[in-house]
């Protein structure tokens, strides 16, 4: 049982940087900012932020669905190609992730601004300027753009593992191409779909940078509010309470998603 010790460094890491911070978050969330006494006031204050919570979940959910719709065909197509092409295409999918997240988002600002690239281009043919930036659409665009690779990767990994003989077996039993997809390929890629949605939804629901750069005061997300509690409003207790609630909401969402894969299937989560 020596092997157990190999996990030691990680366990220490986790204790130091995950468990202890979680305890601190919990402590701040349940104490008063002035007196330091136990209180549920911070959690009770959440109801004022309900619309922001809902907006965050709503935008993250839409982004996840768009990522799935865009990402599934890509993942499927990559999986159909030869091994060399596959490696190349997979690298292309990963490529944007080599560039800083901040830079990628800022680039969209330059594109979408009222005086940005898109508006100045369509301005030349007499359209616009259109309100592209500071909209829900721009925030969703930013989320989809940034998190799409996280959808494609798990989908590709699952689709590539589907036994080609299952496809042949379905054809053998009378399925045309559409039926093969609907009856075999799609059901067997459910673990990838769940995993992909989780990997897009979780960072999207808690993001703040995208909404700050591409959104407006009307598109404030819960991540923004949490950030402001620590940086501008100096109320870490309220910020901690929000983080706690967000975390619980994410767990609930993941739990709901995993129900779709059934109990004894391979479940891949973060």
């Amino acid at each position: 049982m020596k092997n157990k010790f190999l996990a030691g460094p990680y366990l220490i890491w986790m204790a130091l940087f995950t468990i202890i911070p979680l305890v601190i978050v919990l402590y701040f969330a349940l104490t008063d900012s002035v007196t330091g006494r136990f209180t549920l006031a911070n959690l009770a204050a959440m109801k004022d932020y309900l619309p922001i919570f809902l907006r965050s979940i709503w935008l993250a959910a839409i982004s996840s669905v768009i990522c799935l719709i865009l990402g599934y065909p890509v993942a499927w197509c990559i999986a159909q190609t030869g091994p060399k092409v596959q490696r190349f295409l997979y690298m292309l999918v990963m490529l944007p992730m080599c560039i800083s997240f901040l830079l990628r988002t800022l680039a969209w600002v330059a594109m979408l601004e009222d005086t940005g690239i898109i508006n100045s281009l369509i301005g030349r043919i007499g359209i616009g300027p259109l309100p592209l930036i500071r909209t829900n659409g721009a925030v969703i665009l930013g989320m989809v753009y940034n998190y799409l690779p996280y959808m494609i990767m798990p989908l590709y990994t699952v689709i590539i593992k589907i036994d080609p003989r299952l496809v042949e077996a379905a054809q053998d039993l009378g399925c045309d191409h559409a039926q093969v997809f609907g009856k075999v390929t799609l059901p067997l890629s459910v673990p990838g779909i769940v995993s992909g949605i989780t990997m897009v939804f979780v960072p999207a629901v808690s993001t703040f940078y995208i909404s700050q750069k591409l959104g407006s005061s009307g598109t404030t997300l819960i991540g923004d509010v949490i950030e402001s509690q620590f940086k501008t409003a100096y109320n870490p207790n309220l910020g901690a309470a929000m983080s706690l609630v967000l975390m619980i909401l994410i767990f609930i969402c993941i739990g709901l998603m995993n129900r779709f894969t059934g109990d004894d299937d391979e479940v891949m989560t973060l």
């Binding site: 036994d163 003989r165 299952l166 042949e168 077996a169 379905a170 054809q171 053998d172 039993l173 009378g174 399925c175 045309d176 075999v184 059901p187 067997l188 459910v190």
Partner: peptide
């Protein structure tokens, strides 16, 4: 004629049963 239009069925090596 594609496989799904032939009156032929196959028992595959290693069965290829649908795991789902």
């Amino acid at each position: 004629v594609p496989p799904h239009k032939r009156h032929i069925n196959t028992v595959f090596q290693r069965y290829a049963l649908f795991p789902h």
